[in-house]
Design a protein around this nucleic acid. Structure first.
Length: 269
DNA sequence: ATAATAACCTGAGGGC
DNA sequence: TGCCCTCAGGTTATTA
């Protein structure tokens, strides 16, 4: 479900409510996520949340010395609900902070993860080798072009590789390539510096616009307050089966690396 | 190192 | 209604 804009939307929705609040209760209703939720998570009772950060699609709950890493996987969502609200189906984790609303984690497919650690979270094995943030200065056309040099696979799968750049999932990969006018099947090492520059800019623009819209709600993504994201109205190719809004040719669907790719054969070369 | 594939799960929707 | 198939916003582990 969530790519970078949805995770960032979640972070922005949660942080003002949770920052500075102590964890008063942790209820793991289903520990079997992508990896088992560590027993040590219970040790955080009484700890106060310093801040809530994001790296790629990971949320980082900072508690000073220790931290949680929370990944929403394919179908995960975090919401704030009143303490008395009954748990929804597939609500696997509930965390009470102070006396305010309670944090609920719902994840039907259980591809998400809740892990904990101490020290610098950026040194965690899952984060240590990640590529740059797409909205930071570290990510630009030169970096992208350099990382494409040794890659003969399709450009679409390369921009979805978190070691190249983080946060670009299936929707935004398709949309970025459309915006840049690049065929998703193009071999990465055949992308000119100029086209890499254009693609890097498109990725930034698409992700920024999606964050501004509160992310994309296709089926069940909701912001932490239950509202949907509105970027779905701006999708040009992803999930579309009609004609291209720019040139009128039919949008095509193909499969790359076991994922659907949508593109316009008229606009993307 | 890179590339391709399977694997982890549940639910929705279409066709018959 | 039920069954079978395909599809779904992610990532890692394993194998060539």
């Amino acid at each position: 479900m969530p790519e970078l804009p949805e995770v960032e939307t979640t972070r922005r929705g949660l942080e003002p409510h949770l920052r500075g609040q102590p964890v008063t209760r942790i209820d793991i209703r289903q520990p079997r996520l992508r990896w088992p939720v560590p027993e040590a998570i219970q040790n955080f009772r009484g700890h106060s949340l310093r801040n809530l950060k994001r790296r790629g699609k990971y949320l980082i709950f900072n508690f000073g010395e220790d931290y949680w890493l929370w990944h929403l996987g394919m179908s995960g969502s975090l919401r704030l609900l009143p303490p008395e609200a009954a748990p929804a189906a597939h609500e696997h984790v509930r965390v009470d902070f102070g006396n305010g609303p309670t944090l609920r984690y719902r994840d039907p497919r259980r591809f998400g993860a809740l892990l904990c650690g101490s020290g610098d979270p950026l040194h965690h094995p899952l984060l240590a080798d990640l590529g740059p943030e797409p909205l930071s200065d570290a990510f630009d056309g030169a970096w992208l072009h350099e990382r494409c040099q040794r890659r003969s696979s399709a450009i679409k799968t390369v921009i979805m590789d978190s070691h190249v750049v983080v946060g670009v999932g299936n929707i935004y990969a398709c949309e970025s390539l459309f915006l840049a006018g690049i065929n998703p099947k193009t071999r990465a090492n055949r992308l000119s510096p100029g086209r890499a520059e254009r693609l890097a800019r498109s990725i930034r623009d698409v992700l920024s616009a999606a964050i501004d819209q509160g992310g994309t709600t296709l089926r069940d993504f909701t912001r932490s307050d239950g509202q949907p994201g509105y970027f779905a109205q701006r999708l040009n190719v992803y999930g579309q089966n009609g004609d291209c809004p720019r040139c009128g040719r039919g949008i095509r669907r193909i499969v790359q690396a076991q994922r659907s790719t949508f593109y316009c054969p008229g606009c993307q070369h």
